[in-house]
Design a protein around this nucleic acid. Structure first.
Length: 561
DNA sequence: GTACTGGGCCAC
DNA sequence: AAACGTGGCCCAGTAC
């Protein structure tokens, strides 16, 4: 059963259209928007799949009213997948001209879209939503891989629910602890426009050592000039480069850079802007990255530095279960390539250790950097040296990424396990390639074409692995979400999402669950069970293990080993 | 004032 | 070890 929500004639009302499992109309009605929480709650008992144009439009007001739904179809996210997938190229959805369904959705709109009045912010009406839903079902039904695509659409959609739920719940964040942490490192909070005391005194040290009492180290150009005047032959002011320079100014300068970065990125201003009511509420953007990873808006949720994680503290009587998937990408690669040797190396152990034990390489670091290089397209250093040995030991896994790279170099699309496909390279790329084959092609043209071609190959090489890992992660999230909700049932006050164990953070291969303390052990089991389920959903009976490192901690800072 | 770019650094 | 994938976001500097 499907329950379709859309715009009604009256802007203060919404249209509800109920379809049976075959898509036949059951009933159609209109409700005032303020009545939606009650209407949705009543219908949710029948476990419909809610169908709407954009989860970020419909779900937050429901959550604010205390209403959680079990499942949905996010038509905009699904459209983006079907539009581009090599599994649905023949569908009328994929061959139709671009429409408002191809525009970024609510909350994901780029600033340039402000002038695009036909953009994704315009709410489609009932007929438009029903037509799009039908077109999507037809695209799936006509696909050579309907099962995979359908799973991907379901996973993408449950991700959209979860993204809204995590923003709603927020990541517990103790502003007082954060403030103390900043004061300890930087000195007390200064008046606006002034540097904190510790930063100021560190700056003095730098200036004295450079014999330059005005240099601003926040300006790379000015800093580089000052370093040169002091006899330091640096090509840039990057920390990793400066680390190798012997000069009394370097140590305080590196210390200054660390402190300045902390202040700028996660200082008091960040705290004022992004933390309120004891919660940090980033906006997650499902499907925001071409590979299918999530992006985020506001507060830099993709880059919470280790320094400040001590401020992430569970509520009284609650705790965190923090889990991350160990060596997720190489495990995903092993499974998608059907590389039983690599899969076996990861059984019951750290994958890289297993690769050492199997004799492929001597040291864990070699396995790690070798695999990272193989998945990113690295050629230099340790990773480049290890590639031939890895290719001998794991020909199927390495062969898969090499093949993806060659396809990208030719300008072809590649796909993930479930059928998310890479975009075609842009017209400029095509032009550069074509120019290298022209009669008057210069050596420069050829070099540029070769460079662009390899760069696109590195993108497609990484796309298949990163994108399939993102699919695994979505399945993991979806399964975990369901398990957590069930775990919390029957607890006193289990009506609200945040009364039960619930997800509060997700980053590529890592989750944080906020849970009442007495349920922590069951949550930890659920997290692993969900990982196992995700593995089966993507790879069936292929013997790949998805190992997690799971920590039950009151502070996020204590989660890393 | 706003828009944009390059340098730099954080995360996975 | 340092150039090799995906992001967000800060600052300085420049153009308008």
């Amino acid at each position: 059963m499907f329950a379709v929500l859309s715009r009604a004639g009256d802007p203060d009302a919404a249209a509800l259209t109920v379809l049976d499992a075959s898509g036949a109309l059951v009933r159609s009605e209109e409700h005032p928007r303020r009545a939606l929480p009650a209407v949705v709650t009543a219908l949710e008992a029948d476990r419909p799949r809610w169908v709407w144009d954009d989860t970020a439009r419909w779900y937050p007001p429901l959550l604010a009213a205390g209403v959680r739904v079990e499942r949905c179809v996010d038509l905009r996210l699904c459209h983006a997948i079907l539009r581009n997938s090599v599994f649905t190229t023949e569908s009328s959805l994929a061959t139709a001209p671009r429409s408002t369904w191809d525009a970024p959705g609510v909350g994901a709109a780029d600033p340039g879209a402000l002038f695009d009045l036909g953009g994704g912010d315009a709410e489609p009406d009932r007929d438009e939503v029903l037509a799009e839903f039908a077109a999507q079902q037809a695209a799936v039904d006509g696909s050579p891989e309907p099962g995979r695509i359908a799973l991907l659409l379901a996973a993408e959609s449950v991700g959209a629910l979860l993204a809204a739920e995590m923003t709603h719940a927020g990541l517990p964040w103790r502003a007082d602890v954060h403030d103390r942490l900043l004061s300890d490192l930087l000195g007390p909070r200064p008046a606006p426009g002034l540097r904190p005391a510790r930063l100021e005194s560190t700056l003095d040290e730098v200036r004295r050592a450079l014999d330059d009492d005005t240099v601003n180290p926040d300006s790379p150009a000015a800093l580089l000039a000052a370093l040169r005047r002091a006899g330091i032959e640096a090509r840039s002011t990057r920390s990793w480069e400066l680390e190798r320079v012997e000069h009394p100014a370097i140590e305080p300068l590196l210390r200054y850079k660390k402190l300045a970065r902390l202040l700028a990125a996660n200082g008091w201003h960040w705290l004022d802007t992004w933390v309120s009511g004891g919660r940090f509420r980033p906006v997650f953007v499902p499907g925001g990255v071409v590979t299918g990873r999530w992006a985020s808006n506001g507060g830099g949720a993709l880059q919470l530095p280790q320094h400040v994680r001590g401020a992430v503290l569970a509520d009284e009587g609650w705790t965190f279960v923090v889990a991350d998937a160990a060596q997720l990408e190489p495990r995903v690669l092993a499974a998608m390539a059907g590389d039983t040797a690599m899969a076996k190396a990861g059984q019951g152990t750290d994958l890289y250790e297993g690769m050492v034990r199997s004799g492929a390489v001597e040291r864990r670091e070699q396995a790690k950097y070798g695999m990272l290089g193989a998945m990113y397209g690295g050629t230099s250093g340790e990773s480049g040296r290890m590639l031939p040995r890895l290719a001998r030991a794991y020909p199927r896994a390495i062969g898969l990424v090499e093949e993806a790279a060659r396809a990208g170099e030719r300008g072809e699309r590649v796909s993930t396990r479930l059928g998310r496909s890479s975009p075609k390279p842009g017209s400029e790329w095509q032009r550069v390639q074509a120019s290298a084959y022209g009669d008057e092609a210069s050596e420069l043209d050829e070099r540029r074409a070769r460079g662009d071609s390899r760069a696109w190959g590195r993108f497609t090489r990484n796309f298949v692995v990163q994108g399939t890992a993102a699919e695994w992660a979505l399945c993991w999230l979806g399964s975990l979400r369901r398990r957590l909700w069930q775990l919390g049932a029957g607890q006193p006050g289990d009506g609200q999402l945040t009364d039960r164990p619930h997800l509060v953070f997700f980053l590529h291969d890592e989750v944080i669950v906020h849970t009442p303390e007495h349920l922590a052990a069951e949550v930890a089991q659920a997290v692993q069970a969900a990982a196992d389920e995700a593995g089966r959903l993507l790879f069936g009976s292929f013997p790949i293990e998805f190992r997690l490192s799971v920590a039950t901690v009151r502070s996020y800072a204590d989660a890393k080993d």
